[in-house]
Design a protein around this nucleic acid. Structure first.
Length: 452
RNA sequence: GUGGUUGUAGUUCAGUUGGUUAGAACGCCUGAUUGUGGUUCAGGAGGUCGCCGGUUCGAGUCCGGUCUUCCACCCCA
């Protein structure tokens, strides 16, 4: 047999039991809170038709979509001229791809299931996505996204609720210092309108979004490189350097862009949100790279780490248009669940706390295994976790197994125990052991849970 | 996609100007202890030196290619 060196595809990871314990803890907290706020789970397939995905993420994004080769002898019926038509050739080679995010599949799902959905539709989705990116620090080719979206509503209450939901989740995860930043794309549009630089709005958004990372000087440089004139550069810098309370920011920006109808619209939307929830800080330099956002945009940053944003999202109006469905506005937020898990990795709440009421039943001779199984069943019926080794190991090795797996108690079954009906219960941390009946052992284990 | 970086035992890593049989620690297995682990001691198993090719009497070591690792950029979570 040809032996191969075991290895993983680029940018993918295994999660061992220790990691899964942490991941599941965090993911369960998210699900808990999403349900608390009335969101319902859905799942969509890992693979979508290529045409569903392509064209939503910009040229750069399309390049990062993982294509899947067609099955079978897919080029069998190809003709020579197919090779001169890139599009036709491509669909003969690959017409499916791995999902790139969860938002576009949601738009596809909503478009297909309008008859079954009650609007507004509130869904959450926690699934892996794939990107053919070159992996680097904290970035993978397969990673989980965790999205919450409202579909079919224009209400500002959504923003208010989403802000509140973020605070609730982070409180449950004991993440304390973070900033909820909010902005409105319409304000940015207003600014560019007034300055007469609205031609390449999305390109400008990408540059603005970087201010936070590269600083105002490099921002200025980047604008110069892209041929913005010096008076509009000066204005942009003035706007993005303004500091103050939300109220002060609003009156400041109002003076700047009062001549722009869409800009005023954006300001009014923010004022409207303030009626319901004031727990955010306005930040005009928040732009978000994704081009489909049309109104509110938001991002949450951890103050203590340079991990980047913990979550981000916004309001979009035209996502379902591609599937022939109009006037289905939506708003959503995506939690950077991988980053949040990393942020919490050294936190107390994620430190391994193996169940305190766990028992390993060990035997001195394989002939006692039938009795052990009966005992295991009885203890498990009392909701106490029981492990049992499936192989004929010596007692020594069984105790080692308990240690390695952090099982705090070992119940030893031997000749004496069977005859007396009193079983040896060994405390692995203290090294002490005592003989007890099964019922006594069960009540002892139960009392440990209650005191934990 | 661009630039740099890495690859030797299950894992983390040594390995001199190219020279005979490639080492250590941890982990694993066995025993000291026939019914007692986490400590100690003794012994053992485990390697196509990423892969392909080249230079050489001789390559883990030098050269080329390729894959891989990690990092920065583009972009993004």
């Amino acid at each position: 047999m040809n032996r191969i060196k075991p290895s993983l595809p680029k940018g993918t990871r295994d999660f061992g039991p220790n990691e899964m314990e942490k991941r599941e803890y965090v993911i369960n907290k998210f699900k808990e809170v999403f349900n608390l706020y009335g969101f319902k789970p859905i799942q969509t397939p890992s693979i979508e038709n290529t045409e569903t995905l392509v064209g939503n993420y910009g040229n750069e994004g399309d390049r990062l979509i993982f294509n899947i080769l067609n099955s079978g002898n897919f080029l069998k019926d190809s003709k020579r001229e197919d090779f001169n038509v890139p599009k036709r050739l491509k669909s003969k080679i690959s017409n499916k791809a791995l999902r790139y995010d969860l938002t576009v599949p949601l738009a596809r799902y909503v478009s297909m299931n309008q008859d079954k959905l009650t609007l507004p539709f509130k869904r959450y989705q926690i699934q892996p996505v794939w990107r053919a990116d070159r992996p680097q620090k904290g970035r993978f080719r397969e990673f989980y996204q965790c999205d919450v979206d409202y579909i079919g509503t224009n209400s500002r209450i959504c923003e208010a609720e989403i802000i509140d939901l973020v605070y609730t989740i982070f409180e449950k995860l004991k993440i304390k210092s973070f900033d909820f930043k909010l902005n409105n794309r319409k304000i940015l549009q207003g600014i560019t309108e007034i300055l007469g630089i609205s031609d390449n709005f999305n390109e400008l958004c990408v540059i603005i979004d970087k201010i936070d990372k590269i600083g105002i000087e490099k921002f200025e440089k980047e604008l110069k490189i892209n041929n913005y004139n010096s008076s509009s550069i000066t204005s942009l810098i003035e706007i993005f350097q303004f500091r103050g309370t939300n109220k002060e920011k609003i009156s400041f920006i109002k003076k700047k862009i009062s001549g722009s109808k869409i800009g005023i619209e954006g300001i009014n939307e923010i004022k409207n949100i303030l009626n319901f929830n004031k727990n955010f800080s306005l930040d005009f330099s928040l732009a978000r790279g994704l081009s489909y956002y049309t109104s509110s945009i938001f991002e949450v940053k951890s103050k203590n780490n340079d991990l980047g944003s913990l979550c981000g999202g916004g309001r979009y109006e035209n996502l379902t248009e591609k599937f022939g469905v109009k006037s289905m506005p939506g708003i959503g937020i995506s939690f950077g669940i991988e980053r949040i898990i990393e942020l919490l990795a050294n936190n107390d709440i994620l430190q391994s706390n193996y169940s305190k009421n766990k028992i390993l039943i060990s035997f001195l001779d394989a002939k006692f295994i039938p009795q052990c199984l009966k005992i295991a069943k009885k203890i498990r019926e009392n909701n106490i976790s029981v492990d049992l080794i499936s192989d004929n190991f010596k007692l020594k090795k069984q105790l080692k197994y308990a240690n390695k797996n952090k099982i705090p108690y070992v119940l030893i079954v031997g000749e004496d125990e069977i005859n007396s009906n009193l079983y040896t219960l060994k405390n692995m941390q203290k090294g002490k052991q005592e003989k007890k009946s099964i019922d006594e052992i069960i009540s002892k284990m139960n009392s440990i849970v209650n005191n934990a």
